[in-house]
Design a binder for these strands. Structure first.
Lengths: 159, 159
DNA sequence: CTACCCCCTGACACCGGCGTCAAGGTCAAG
DNA sequence: CTTGACCTTGACGCCGGTGTCAGGGGGTAG
């Protein structure tokens, strides 16, 4: 198939596909007229790239996953290089979450003085009604909301 | 004082100060030779900007805070525009945290298959020993780590 | 032959907060 | 007078993943 079809089937732009090729993530044989020609397996490769980008990986991070798939493995994440990248990304994500939690704490602390009663539960009362069907969770007493295995706060931001 | 001194006292570069001025956040009167001249209050303004940048605000976000200070208020966050921005940023931070938690969940789910036993507790075993004095929290059974008023997961990321 | 759709390469634009270099003026100390 | 630290404006670079435009070729349907 040509680039337009692959783009449509993978849900990306042709521009993105050319960029991935330029970055060495995918490759294409060329027809006599210079057009790129792809096969079914490329759909899978692009899907892998997109799903990784969706969770915050860069194209560079995605490289070992793609290589893994091209090496014949059924899952891009099954190679040791992929695992190493995943672990690194996990640490990065955790660090980011911790930083954001610190930021949040600083903002809420500020708001405690300037707008008492504003930050009882997250994101509310400042931009109209909820989008749609957001059931407004319990919020309980306003503290200790358990998460789905979130990283530990470990906050130490002294201001 | 001139730009070099303000830069040193505020802990920023002269380039940054010129940029803030270009963005209309701070202003300086000019000496006869064209040099920028600042006074003590500017140290405070720049400090406010820096502390806001440090929690993820953009310069645009910082504008009402600076205006508030320049209007004579003792705290940059005490004006209604500042409060509005803080609430918006809080919502943005919450959204980012939720997104990151979803990303984290996807990565750990992946690792569950490709590296069983790797993600029992966050950020460990992939880059040497802990930095220093990080006591490695309990981790308990591996779930439900309470946070310091973190936003609700509300995750709905179906893959 | 003309339309028209698809493809090609190359390259600038974007976003934010600066770093950094260029080319030159100012002023006090030696 | 010279040196050298400090200042000025202007402008490009960076990072990542594209969007988009420019300018031109390929192939098929009418």
């Amino acid at each position: 198939m040509r680039i337009g079809e692959l783009a449509e089937r993978a849900g990306v732009s042709a521009r993105a596909l050319r960029y991935y090729e330029q970055q060495g993530l995918i490759s294409a044989r060329r027809a006599a007229n210079g057009y790129r020609e792809y096969d079914e397996s490329d759909v899978r490769l692009v899907a892998e790239i997109r799903s990784l980008l969706a969770v915050g990986f860069t194209l560079e991070d995605a490289r070992p996953f793609v290589d893994c798939l091209r090496a014949g493995h059924e899952a891009g994440a099954s190679c040791p290089e992929s695992v190493a990248v995943s672990l690194r990304k996990l640490a990065e994500i955790d660090a980011e979450i911790r930083a954001l939690i610190r930021h949040r704490a600083e903002v809420t602390a500020q708001l405690t003085y300037t707008c008492p009663g504003c930050d009882l539960f997250p994101a509310e009362g400042n931009d109209g009604p909820r989008p749609a069907g957001t059931p407004r969770r319990q919020a309980a007493t306003g503290r200790l909301a358990g998460g789905v295995t979130p990283p530990p706060p470990d906050d130490q931001a002294g201001s």
